[in-house]
């Protein structure tokens, strides 16, 4: 009797050991390469924009209601290919940040200076959260993104995208 029971136990034990793992292996081998292919390896980020009112003037945004809303100080960054200009309402002279010329003949914008100036402007205008950015047509998109990024980083989360006013003579 005793020997019979032990045989059955041994048989059960061997059944468990011989679990067929091939289907699950096949599943893994299919799923893992697929997941590796679609996995995002670069962290993406998004920058939101506010759109300027169709008139292109003022920070009100919603047409006639602008006069009822408390007037907020207007700050604008204008991007040129050879410089960045910061215009602050109530300050007569704009801040000019010339591009840096490299020995190899290329130019690049001075983002550190832009960062410093925006930090200083923000310290004087802590209640201002909106800034207008106007890129001129020849300016690269990379420059625009960096200007938006610095503005948001320095306490101007609402970036208003504005079209430059080009005068045809």
């Amino acid at each position: 009797m005793a020997s019979g029971v032990s045989k059955r136990r041994t048989q059960k034990g061997s059944d468990v050991q011989e679990l067929n793992l091939m289907p699950i292996m096949n599943l893994f081998i299919t799923i893992i390469p697929m997941l590796l292919m679609i996995t995002v390896t670069v962290h993406m980020a998004l920058l939101s924009l506010n759109l300027a009112a169709s008139g292109g003037e003022g920070a009100g945004g919603e047409g006639g209601e602008a006069s009822d809303v408390e007037k907020v100080k207007e700050i604008k960054i204008i991007l040129y290919t050879d410089r960045i200009e910061i215009r602050e309402e109530g300050v007569s002279d704009p801040i000019l940040i010339p591009a840096i010329f490299s020995p190899d003949g290329s130019t690049r914008h001075d983002y550190l200076a832009l960062d410093d100036h925006l930090t200083e402007i923000k310290s004087r205008n802590e209640d201002v959260f909106e800034i207008g950015i106007t890129p001129y047509p020849d300016v690269y998109y990379g420059t625009l993104i960096r200007a938006i990024d610095i503005s948001k980083l320095r306490g101007f989360p609402e970036v208003k995208y504005e079209r430059p006013r080009v005068m045809v003579l």
Binding site: V42, H43, M44, A45, L46, L47, S48, L49, L51, Y111, L112, L114, D115, I145, R146, I148, D149, I150, L153, Y161
Partner: peptide, 18 residues
């Protein structure tokens, strides 16, 4: 209603702007 620009996320301001 909203417009977004898509970018790659960086960490170091010195590397990005400096």
């Amino acid at each position: 209603a909203n417009i977004y620009f898509s970018t790659v996320r960086g960490d170091d301001p010195q590397l990005l702007y400096g």
